[in-house]
Design a protein around this nucleic acid. Sequence first.
DNA 1: AAAGAATAAGTGCGACCGGTCGGTTTTATG
DNA 2: CATAAAACCGACCGGTCGCACTTATTCTTT
Lengths: 214, 214
Amino acid sequence: MDDEKRGDGRLLRGRRTREAVLESAVALASVHGLDGLTFARLAEHLGVSKSGLFAHWKDKERLQLDAVGWARRQWTEHVMGPALRAPAGVRRVFALHEARLAFYAGGALPGGCFFLAAQTEFDDRPGAVRARLAESLHDWLGFVRSLLDEAVTLGELPAGLDTGQLAYEIDALGESTVVHARLVGHDLTYARARRAVLERLRGLATDPAVLPEG
Amino acid sequence: MDDEKRGDGRLLRGRRTREAVLESAVALASVHGLDGLTFARLAEHLGVSKSGLFAHWKDKERLQLDAVGWARRQWTEHVMGPALRAPAGVRRVFALHEARLAFYAGGALPGGCFFLAAQTEFDDRPGAVRARLAESLHDWLGFVRSLLDEAVTLGELPAGLDTGQLAYEIDALGESTVVHARLVGHDLTYARARRAVLERLRGLATDPAVLPEG
DNA sequence: AAAGAATAAGTGCGACCGGTCGGTTTTATG
DNA sequence: CATAAAACCGACCGGTCGCACTTATTCTTT
């Protein structure tokens, strides 16, 4: 991460290609998994030679770690970002859930969800990759919880609410969307995931009217 | 499936070894995925030669399909079975959820959940394996729903309840347990998953007293 | 005792894997 | 314009994969 020796087009170009490669890497990993993220596959997908990739990542683990980092950037931009543009409180919580579903439904990642694929693969394989994935999940749950805490502070959710518990539920209802959408049906699944969280929040909110009806 | 040519111990023995192999195959696949279920790995794990396995399954896909079938048998026995021994109605629904959590927590499968691993791997790979996984998920959701319908019929859940919706929620809250337990913490995760479904059912039940309190 | 199927084992092939190496092109700097 | 650094490439290595083919060995039925 020590790029940017001002005005050096070589480094700039290098960074651009790195990011372009990572964009593809995350997309490929969402389909084939982080283990199926092969240098050969990645190179072919980009129309690039395999060895050219080794100039940027000395081994596969580095590539995997950077892919996790890039997936987090994507997630921050496309899921957390839109939520933060909604009014704070219970509406922001629901906006977060909807942004997540929109991100899945939008098909930005052909495999559905990078993190689900990576976590199910690495949750039982000790190492740096697992550690970063665990950290990612921890941070994500912390973010959901922080929005819930905010809603409590604003008085839109009841005081004393177990926000950690609710954060788990919201995450679970969003996450299982990925597989269900592809194996059961997209529209039906997203409708159910949306409704589940909406009804849950409406049931808890001090003023359910601020949330959409259906 | 044309075993059992009356009294022929060879076929019987063949079936037994097949089942022993499948038991290991499902366990291995829960860790390394259905793709990571290689003949070499399976043979080594069993202390058997690779070629001996080819006598039973001519190619990898056959093995994968049979592994799915065996995982379904396990699931039927260890998750659906205990539930059916609980009194019908809302208690049976919750017993199903608890049996699932117990199955996960019991560590019968070292990788946590065969189906989650397999589904996230194959949900975007057309083929026979995906088809069987989709069928498995469909049947499972249908089973959950049937228990819910039963509870409605018994008057323990309100008439007009969208049981398909609730079945999705219950499945989601159970499924995300697998990854969370390993990356966040076992006890905390199972407690949350248990509580989430319990509270949901208690909120809907015409007589919440039939369900446990905490 | 003979026959024959089920099971096990060895061997080899082509494909692909992660990774290395030597060399060429591009780019900023003196 | 020379040079060095970075980006990039083609060829290649050792290893493992799925899988076929061939050859024993074990067990059951006749």
